[in-house]
């Protein structure tokens, strides 16, 4: 009983398993520990939902160039072009 109670209280371990599950296969023990905890814990269910949303948004943020749409300044580009041309013409 004590072991079960420990699982029910352990949000820290559960949230770590939630992160792991996003990209990795959990072991059976890990999977059931996480599932069992989530049955009883609405806070971690919310965390799981938010964690998934954050993952999606972070991916979007990087994949759309919206993260940074700045372009390199023309002077720097000319310098680079010259260096490449020099290398090629050697």
């Amino acid at each position: 009983m004590n072991a079960l109670r420990k699982i029910i209280r352990n949000c820290q371990q559960t949230t770590l398993l939630i992160e792991k599950q996003a990209t990795e296969q959990l072991t059976l023990k890990e999977f059931f520990t996480m599932r069992f905890h989530l049955l009883f814990c609405s806070i971690c269910r919310l965390f799981k939902k938010q964690s998934g949303i954050i993952n999606e948004l972070v991916k979007q943020l990087y994949k759309n160039a919206t993260f940074n749409t700045q372009t390199l300044d023309a002077g720097f580009k000319t310098t680079m072009q010259n260096r490449i041309d020099n290398e090629l013409d050697r």
Binding site: L61, Y62, A65, F67, N68, T69, Q70, T71, L72, K77, M80, Q81, I84, D85, L88
Partner: peptide, 24 residues
């Protein structure tokens, strides 16, 4: 076509690097 690299890829690569390092 290395002579076209700056023209075609420099801004893309710059944005990519900037998003990961956040240092111009």
């Amino acid at each position: 076509d290395a002579r076209q690299w700056v023209n075609q890829h420099a801004d893309y690569l710059y944005s990519f690097a900037l998003s990961r390092l956040n240092n111009e």
